[in-house]
Nucleic acid binder design. Structure first.
Length: 103
DNA sequence: GGAATGACGATAA
DNA sequence: ATTATCGCCATTC
């Protein structure tokens, strides 16, 4: 399957996400350039077990209801900036080095 | 080829 | 704030 390469791209990007930061499915998909948010989610559902999936959130900073509770534990431990039940995308939104002037 | 589905996203009401 | 609907992209039946 060629999707293997796509999977590598997604996992690699997710692994790059530093603690206390998060990336939305749409951002990841856009960063890779191919597919869409659903493909990222599909990959995560299949191979996400080997990467910090809790650092991958929805566009509005919330997590899928299925993993919301699980992610809260990680956020609490890693110190992810949160506002109520959602992650503070304004502070936590992260993009790979070199693609942003946030350094 | 067409319909249905999914760890999504955005917009409308 | 919340629910509902449409659109997107690839996979699966």
């Amino acid at each position: 399957m060629d999707s293997e390469a796509y999977v590598e791209s997604v996992l690699r990007l997710v692994e790059q996400i530093p603690p206390g930061r998060v990336m939305s499915y749409g951002e990841i998909a856009a960063c890779i350039g191919t597919g869409g948010p659903r493909q990222v989610g599909a990959v995560m559902a299949e191979y996400g077990g080997g990467v910090p999936w809790w650092r991958v959130v929805r566009a509005d900073g919330s997590l899928p209801p299925s993993h919301d509770a699980r992610a809260r534990e990680r956020y609490r431990l890693e110190g992810t900036p949160m506002r109520g039940d959602r992650v503070e995308m304004r502070r936590a939104a992260w993009v790979p080095d070199g693609a942003v002037g946030g350094l």
